[in-house]
Design a protein around this nucleic acid. Structure first.
Lengths: 207, 207
DNA sequence: TTATAATGTGAATCTGAGTTCATTCTATGA
DNA sequence: TCATAGAATGAACTCAGATTCACATTATAA
């Protein structure tokens, strides 16, 4: 049957495209966007340079397709984990734990994210403003929402902006992530979430 | 007198070279290393492309000369401010305040630093490992030293690694810096140092 | 089996940007 | 005034790397 075969072809093509994205993810993460060549990607995808163009329009398109699909997946996973809880404190814990989990599971992507996109934020290019930005916004909104509930129930002090608190929590997490990347297989990240909770709630003052 | 004229020439050359670095600093900060061309720099320095090569060996050399001179200056300024105090708590305050001050005074440089070097850390290139790394190390050692004293005198709790605390403080500061860069002329940074102190010492728990 | 479409290949082409260089300009010092 | 050295200029050169393309291979469907 014609349509059956066509569907299989479709899936096959999808699969091959995904393999290319996987290769690209690795190469971009290791070298950064500019230093990574189409040959690098082709080699890792066990393809020829020209072959890549059967699936994507060019280097930029590969980068964007790969980057966006990863970012979207991460955000969905994160929101999924949070929604397993009703209690906002547990949600906050889940958020922090899952930030670590995501980084462990998608370490290549986050390596790339840090490498290229802490700079790209300033560039305000299309990929960022139209695709990635909204995703991050969505996550941030969720976190602020949780924090607001914790303020209302007097678990968190009420004299600070929820947005400010959300940012500070994220940066505390980022500290661990950055340290982890500098010595990637030494320590397991998941266990660090307790430290973050402790630090952001109790601070440095002795008890 | 010959030697007199020669010295003036020297100084003139120095001055012109510094102008070029200033132009380069701007261009690199705005576009990032790869997107910034020699023509961009030449235009901003009111020079021709070829003219730049009378002062520097090439694009890389310009970048490195500029980057290192800025980094060195910043570290010296920071250490200078700290050494004005004997009391470690005041030193910590001075550190935080001066981190903000530096960023305000050298905003171009720090914009570039964030753009390119949060990625370059992973690259471990020569500029980083031999020049910038040691500078940062020096600053970090100083901060850890201060924190250790505060732990000893029971101003800071003693159940956390000083290195960990130093990192967390830096990341709290970075949060403000990043926010500032996203809306650069809105808020004055200097006033934020109180927030950092408050947050890292008291945390989120209501009093 | 064979026609056809899809995919793979890598050498050739194109492009953009860093570097070089022959030449011109400017300032110094005799 | 004139000779010389240093600086400025920008067109030409070079080269890495993205893209294209003519051709080969493979898989599907009749």
């Amino acid at each position: 049957m014609a349509s059956y075969g066509k569907n299989r072809k479709e899936r096959e093509k999808q699969r091959r495209a995904e393999e290319i994205l996987l290769a690209a993810e690795h190469c971009f993460a290791v070298k950064g966007f500019h230093e990574c060549t189409m040959e690098d990607i082709a080699a890792r995808a066990e393809s020829s340079v020209g072959g890549l163009y059967n699936f994507f329009g060019g280097k930029d398109e590969i980068y964007q397709a790969m980057f966006y699909s990863r970012a979207e997946k991460c955000v969905l996973e994160l929101l999924g984990k949070i929604s397993a809880y009703d209690d906002p404190y547990q949600q906050l814990e889940a958020y922090i734990k899952e930030r670590f989990g995501l980084t462990e599971r998608h370490s290549k992507f986050f390596q790339l994210y840090m490498r290229d996109h802490l700079g790209d934020r300033f560039k305000k290019n299309k990929l960022w403003t139209e695709a990635i930005g909204p995703l991050i916004e969505k996550m941030n909104t969720k976190l602020i929402d949780i924090i607001q509930k914790l303020i209302n129930s007097n678990v968190i002090r009420n004299d600070l902006e929820p947005g400010f608190i959300a940012g500070q929590i994220d940066y505390c997490i980022d500290f661990f992530l950055d340290s982890w990347f500098e010595d990637i297989d030494n320590k397991d990240l998941l266990n660090k979430s307790g430290f973050v909770i402790d630090f952001v709630f109790n601070g440095l003052t002795p008890r």
